[in-house]
């Protein structure tokens, strides 16, 4: 069953422009200047039941606009969409019973109240039985490890704690689809990882489908099965995350340190010397051109190894590379 299906979605905004200064302000009152911004330009994709899909792209790429159309917050300018069988902007209320939403920058918990009060209010909003709500709260509290936080006014929680409560709140009514807009924004590494783990666990336990937007590649790596990269309101790349890694994570970086100083003119065939220090060297290579064991063997021959690190390029670099490729292809066409 497909949970989300959208085709050729478009959204344009009209914004007012105002020249700087007092004169500009006065002029804009009498003769406003308008500018049309195309936030989403013909996006199509679908998401199956139990899927975990990530929309990734820089700020202003159209990720949030897409997610807002899918929840029924925004009317699209053009195009079709079906979410759980509903047209979001026409059947917003019916749809709302079956989806959970988290907007990272728009908290839904009541600021001055303990989270449990908001949970109970949500129970009323989604018209659940009091007994059900109670059970559900204790289940979610355990799953999200927030038992000790529930009675504290939300304003006194840390951002990471608050975000875990936010996501738990959005799952109170057992939604079939969870839409997350920048869920990890502003969190530190540990809190981010914890959020990702709980989302994935809920997906596995309850088979809730997940669509999230992010500009943090780490979210994708840890959480998503499939990825769509958008830029300037268009899809530039989509694939399974594992394929993405296989296709683009073909380069490795190795750094070594030796016990004794090494010559300044250190060289090795078929690799890229990135940096040479007094005791160490850093190099990169493509596994399709030269096997890793060969590189390591050669490095070991050059002296007594004290330390060695091997790393993949970050997904961020990979995405930058994809952008470059796409732009390059466009230029070639032109």
């Amino acid at each position: 069953m497909t949970v989300i299906q959208i085709s050729n979605l478009r959204k344009t905004f009209t914004t007012k422009r105002k020249a700087a200064g007092l004169g500009g302000s006065v002029r804009s009152i009498f003769r406003p200047q308008h500018q049309v911004v195309e936030a989403v330009r013909g996006i199509s994709f679908d998401l199956g039941e139990g899927g975990r899909l990530g929309l990734i792209g820089p700020n202003g790429a159209g990720k949030s606009t897409t997610i807002k159309i899918l929840t029924g917050i925004l009317f699209p300018t053009e195009g079709e969409a079906s979410v759980l069988g509903y047209v979001p902007w026409k059947e917003r209320r019916q749809l709302a019973y079956h989806i959970g939403t988290v907007f990272g920058q728009r908290p839904q918990l009541w600021y001055h109240l303990p989270a449990i009060d908001t949970f109970q209010l949500f129970g009323k909003i989604y018209e659940l039985e009091d007994k059900d709500v109670k059970q559900r709260i204790s289940f979610l509290a355990e799953a999200f490890e927030i038992e000790d936080l529930l009675e504290t006014p939300v304003r006194k929680l840390s951002l990471g704690q608050r975000m875990r409560c936010e996501i738990a709140a959005s799952l109170i009514h057992r939604p079939k689809l969870l839409l997350l807009d920048e869920p990890s924004i502003g969190l530190d590494v540990v809190a981010k990882q914890r959020i990702r783990d709980t989302i994935r666990r809920m997906n596995e336990m309850e088979n809730v489908s997940v669509l999230l937007t992010s500009h943090d590649a780490g979210d994708l790596e840890a959480l998503c099965k499939r990825v769509i990269i958008i830029n300037h309101g268009q899809i530039v790349y989509q694939d399974r995350v594992s394929n993405l890694k296989r296709r683009y994570l073909t380069t490795k970086e190795v750094g070594v340190r030796y016990a004794r100083p090494i010559p300044k003119d250190f060289t090795m065939p078929d690799v890229n010397i990135l940096k040479v220090g007094k005791y160490g060297v850093k190099l990169g290579f493509d596994t399709r051109q030269i096997p890793a064991d060969v590189v390591l063997a050669r490095l070991a021959e050059s002296g007594d190894l004290v330390d060695i690190t091997i790393s993949d390029p970050s997904l961020e670099e990979v995405i930058a590379k994809i952008y470059q490729e796409v732009e390059g292809a466009k230029e070639a066409q032109a």
Binding site: T71, I73, R93, A96, T101, F103, R106, I125, Y126
Partner: peptide, 12 residues
């Protein structure tokens, strides 16, 4: 843009 929250809820 704070209407988002109310728009994502199944209420008037």
């Amino acid at each position: 843009g704070r209407l988002d929250y109310y728009l994502s809820m199944p209420r008037p």
